[in-house]
Lab assay of single mutants.
Amino acid sequence: MLEGKVKWFNSEKGFGFIEVEGQDDVFVHFSAIQGEGFKTLEEGQAVSFEIVEGNRGPQAANVTKEA
């Protein structure tokens, strides 16, 4: 699992990017966010995740919000 911070997330469109120190930003789709209820992320929020190869390159999977 990697750790990063949410760079930005558009809850209307359901996607955004996660910043990872020393690496390129990683695309995140709302469907990759773990948990119940409305799936969104806040700018600057700490998250842990895995990287998988998507249709358009690397993207986040199994995203969990850090306490």
Rank of each mutant, 00 (worst) to 15 (best):
residue 18 I to Y: 00
residue 54 G to P: 03
residue 39 K to T: 06
residue 18 I to F: 03
residue 35 G to I: 11
residue 2 L to A: 15
residue 41 L to Q: 01
residue 4 G to W: 02
residue 51 I to V: 13
residue 53 E to N: 10
residue 9 F to W: 11
residue 63 V to H: 00
residue 32 A to V: 10
residue 21 E to S: 08
residue 15 F to Q: 04
residue 8 W to Q: 03
residue 19 E to T: 14
residue 60 A to Y: 00
residue 8 W to I: 04
residue 47 V to G: 00
residue 46 A to F: 10
residue 49 F to T: 02
residue 30 F to R: 15
residue 40 T to Q: 11
residue 58 P to T: 13
residue 9 F to P: 00
residue 8 W to R: 04
residue 64 T to Y: 07
residue 64 T to M: 14
residue 30 F to N: 05
residue 12 E to C: 05
residue 57 G to D: 03
residue 55 N to W: 11
residue 37 G to S: 13
residue 43 E to D: 15
residue 63 V to P: 01
residue 1 M to T: 12
residue 44 G to N: 07
residue 15 F to P: 00
residue 53 E to V: 13
residue 7 K to W: 03
residue 50 E to M: 11
residue 55 N to S: 12
residue 9 F to Q: 01
residue 39 K to R: 09
residue 4 G to M: 01
residue 23 Q to F: 13
residue 62 N to P: 02
residue 33 I to V: 07
residue 8 W to K: 04
residue 14 G to D: 01
residue 5 K to D: 03
residue 45 Q to H: 14
residue 41 L to V: 06
residue 53 E to F: 14
residue 27 F to Y: 05
residue 57 G to V: 04
residue 65 K to C: 06
residue 43 E to I: 13
residue 19 E to D: 08
residue 12 E to H: 09
residue 52 V to D: 11
residue 26 V to S: 03
residue 66 E to T: 15
residue 55 N to C: 06
residue 47 V to S: 01
residue 40 T to N: 12
residue 55 N to Q: 13
residue 52 V to W: 13
residue 42 E to L: 11
residue 18 I to G: 00
residue 15 F to M: 15
residue 15 F to N: 03
residue 20 V to N: 04
residue 57 G to A: 05
residue 45 Q to E: 06
residue 43 E to G: 08
residue 29 H to F: 13
residue 43 E to A: 14
residue 39 K to E: 05
residue 53 E to M: 11
residue 35 G to A: 12
residue 53 E to W: 11
residue 42 E to N: 15
residue 5 K to S: 06
residue 54 G to L: 09
residue 65 K to P: 08
residue 55 N to F: 13
residue 59 Q to L: 08
residue 56 R to F: 10
residue 4 G to P: 01
residue 14 G to A: 03
residue 54 G to V: 07
residue 46 A to L: 15
residue 53 E to D: 12
residue 63 V to Y: 00
residue 58 P to I: 14
residue 38 F to I: 14
residue 6 V to I: 12
residue 11 S to D: 07
residue 34 Q to W: 05
residue 21 E to T: 13
residue 5 K to M: 05
residue 33 I to C: 03
residue 53 E to K: 15
residue 19 E to L: 14
residue 44 G to W: 05
residue 63 V to F: 01
residue 20 V to L: 08
residue 21 E to G: 10
residue 33 I to P: 01
residue 34 Q to S: 15
residue 5 K to I: 11
residue 51 I to N: 03
residue 58 P to C: 04
residue 65 K to A: 12
residue 60 A to W: 00
residue 37 G to H: 06
residue 39 K to Y: 05
residue 23 Q to Y: 14
residue 34 Q to A: 15
residue 9 F to G: 01
residue 28 V to H: 00
residue 64 T to R: 09
residue 9 F to A: 02
residue 34 Q to G: 12
residue 6 V to A: 03
residue 7 K to P: 01
residue 27 F to H: 03
residue 43 E to C: 05
residue 8 W to D: 02
residue 9 F to T: 02
residue 34 Q to C: 06
residue 39 K to M: 07
residue 36 E to K: 07
residue 2 L to N: 12
residue 35 G to S: 13
residue 51 I to D: 01
residue 24 D to S: 14
residue 31 S to A: 09
residue 49 F to E: 00
residue 33 I to Y: 03
residue 8 W to V: 04
residue 27 F to W: 09
residue 18 I to Q: 00
residue 46 A to C: 04
residue 65 K to M: 11
residue 40 T to S: 13
residue 67 A to D: 14
residue 18 I to D: 00
residue 59 Q to G: 05
residue 58 P to G: 06
residue 59 Q to C: 04
residue 26 V to L: 15
residue 46 A to I: 14
residue 54 G to W: 14
residue 57 G to H: 07
residue 7 K to S: 06
residue 28 V to G: 01
residue 9 F to S: 02
residue 38 F to A: 15
residue 58 P to A: 12
residue 39 K to F: 05
residue 12 E to S: 13
residue 25 D to C: 04
residue 22 G to Q: 11
residue 15 F to G: 02
residue 31 S to E: 06
residue 16 G to A: 01
residue 62 N to Q: 08
residue 12 E to I: 14
residue 66 E to R: 15
residue 10 N to E: 07
residue 63 V to D: 01
residue 61 A to T: 15
residue 5 K to N: 09
residue 7 K to N: 04
residue 18 I to K: 00
residue 38 F to H: 13
residue 27 F to N: 02
residue 32 A to L: 03
residue 46 A to V: 14
residue 32 A to C: 04
residue 36 E to Y: 11
residue 61 A to F: 11
residue 23 Q to C: 06
residue 47 V to E: 00
residue 42 E to G: 13
residue 3 E to D: 11
residue 26 V to I: 14
residue 51 I to C: 05
residue 7 K to A: 06
residue 35 G to E: 09
residue 48 S to Q: 15
residue 51 I to A: 06
residue 44 G to E: 04
residue 20 V to G: 04
residue 43 E to W: 15
residue 35 G to D: 15
residue 21 E to I: 10
residue 64 T to I: 05
residue 55 N to D: 09
residue 1 M to Y: 10
residue 57 G to Y: 06
residue 57 G to W: 07
residue 14 G to H: 04
residue 15 F to R: 02
residue 56 R to A: 12
residue 65 K to V: 13
residue 37 G to T: 10
residue 57 G to P: 04
residue 67 A to F: 10
residue 2 L to Q: 14
residue 37 G to L: 08
residue 5 K to H: 06
residue 55 N to I: 10
residue 18 I to A: 02
residue 48 S to H: 09
residue 27 F to T: 01
residue 21 E to W: 07
residue 31 S to W: 09
residue 49 F to W: 02
residue 1 M to P: 10
residue 11 S to R: 12
residue 59 Q to M: 14
residue 16 G to D: 00
residue 60 A to E: 00
residue 30 F to G: 03
residue 1 M to I: 08
residue 35 G to R: 04
residue 14 G to I: 01
residue 36 E to F: 06
residue 3 E to K: 15
residue 43 E to R: 15
residue 21 E to Q: 10
residue 41 L to D: 00
residue 45 Q to F: 07
residue 37 G to N: 09
residue 29 H to V: 03
residue 36 E to G: 07
residue 62 N to T: 14
residue 11 S to T: 14
residue 66 E to P: 14
residue 45 Q to V: 14
residue 35 G to Y: 09
residue 41 L to N: 01
residue 51 I to W: 09
residue 64 T to D: 07
residue 26 V to W: 03
residue 55 N to R: 05
residue 12 E to R: 14
residue 1 M to Q: 13
residue 12 E to T: 11
residue 22 G to A: 08
residue 53 E to S: 13
residue 44 G to I: 02
residue 60 A to P: 01
residue 63 V to M: 03
residue 22 G to V: 03
residue 6 V to G: 01
residue 24 D to K: 12
residue 30 F to V: 06
residue 49 F to H: 01
residue 18 I to P: 00
residue 38 F to E: 07
residue 5 K to Q: 05
residue 8 W to L: 04
residue 64 T to S: 11
residue 19 E to A: 13
residue 54 G to M: 11
residue 21 E to F: 09
residue 42 E to Q: 14
residue 16 G to F: 01
residue 41 L to F: 04
residue 37 G to M: 10
residue 45 Q to S: 11
residue 63 V to C: 04
residue 33 I to Q: 02
residue 13 K to G: 07
residue 11 S to M: 13
residue 19 E to V: 13
residue 64 T to Q: 15
residue 59 Q to T: 07
residue 17 F to C: 04
residue 28 V to T: 04
residue 10 N to L: 10
residue 28 V to C: 06
residue 47 V to I: 10
residue 23 Q to I: 08
residue 31 S to F: 06
residue 5 K to W: 05
residue 18 I to N: 00
residue 51 I to S: 04
residue 5 K to E: 05
residue 36 E to C: 05
residue 41 L to T: 03
residue 44 G to M: 07
residue 39 K to A: 07
residue 9 F to D: 00
residue 2 L to M: 13
residue 20 V to Q: 08
residue 10 N to S: 15
residue 49 F to Q: 00
residue 19 E to F: 15
residue 28 V to A: 03
residue 26 V to N: 01
residue 14 G to W: 02
residue 1 M to K: 15
residue 11 S to E: 07
residue 10 N to K: 12
residue 38 F to K: 08
residue 42 E to I: 11
residue 4 G to I: 01
residue 3 E to N: 10
residue 59 Q to V: 14
residue 48 S to R: 09
residue 48 S to C: 13
residue 40 T to A: 12
residue 49 F to R: 00
residue 25 D to L: 06
residue 46 A to E: 06
residue 54 G to N: 07
residue 25 D to H: 05
residue 39 K to C: 04
residue 45 Q to L: 12
residue 4 G to N: 01
residue 42 E to F: 08
residue 19 E to W: 09
residue 67 A to C: 06
residue 29 H to N: 03
residue 16 G to V: 01
residue 20 V to W: 13
residue 65 K to N: 09
residue 58 P to D: 06
residue 53 E to T: 09
residue 41 L to H: 01
residue 49 F to K: 00
residue 44 G to L: 05
residue 5 K to P: 02
residue 6 V to Y: 01
residue 62 N to L: 13
residue 54 G to F: 06
residue 32 A to M: 05
residue 39 K to P: 09
residue 25 D to N: 13
residue 23 Q to E: 12
residue 58 P to K: 11
residue 16 G to K: 00
residue 31 S to L: 12
residue 3 E to T: 11
residue 17 F to G: 02
residue 39 K to N: 07
residue 1 M to H: 09
residue 23 Q to D: 09
residue 65 K to T: 12
residue 19 E to Y: 12
residue 64 T to W: 11
residue 60 A to F: 01
residue 41 L to A: 04
residue 17 F to E: 03
residue 62 N to K: 14
residue 58 P to E: 06
residue 2 L to D: 04
residue 41 L to M: 08
residue 50 E to W: 15
residue 47 V to Q: 00
residue 41 L to K: 01
residue 55 N to E: 08
residue 52 V to R: 07
residue 64 T to N: 11
residue 14 G to V: 01
residue 25 D to E: 06
residue 17 F to K: 05
residue 10 N to D: 10
residue 24 D to I: 12
residue 34 Q to H: 12
residue 37 G to P: 11
residue 47 V to T: 03
residue 35 G to F: 08
residue 20 V to T: 12
residue 60 A to D: 00
residue 20 V to H: 07
residue 33 I to L: 10
residue 7 K to I: 08
residue 7 K to M: 04
residue 2 L to R: 07
residue 63 V to N: 01
residue 23 Q to R: 12
residue 35 G to L: 11
residue 2 L to H: 13
residue 61 A to Y: 13
residue 50 E to D: 11
residue 10 N to G: 04
residue 50 E to H: 15
residue 2 L to C: 05
residue 20 V to A: 10
residue 2 L to S: 15
residue 61 A to N: 12
residue 33 I to S: 02
residue 20 V to R: 12
residue 13 K to A: 08
residue 8 W to S: 04
residue 67 A to L: 09
residue 30 F to A: 05
residue 62 N to F: 04
residue 36 E to T: 10
residue 27 F to I: 03
residue 9 F to L: 02
residue 39 K to Q: 11
residue 10 N to Q: 12
residue 32 A to H: 08
residue 66 E to N: 12
residue 62 N to V: 11
residue 62 N to H: 08
residue 55 N to P: 10
residue 48 S to D: 06
residue 43 E to V: 10
residue 46 A to M: 09
residue 61 A to W: 14
residue 11 S to N: 14
residue 52 V to K: 14
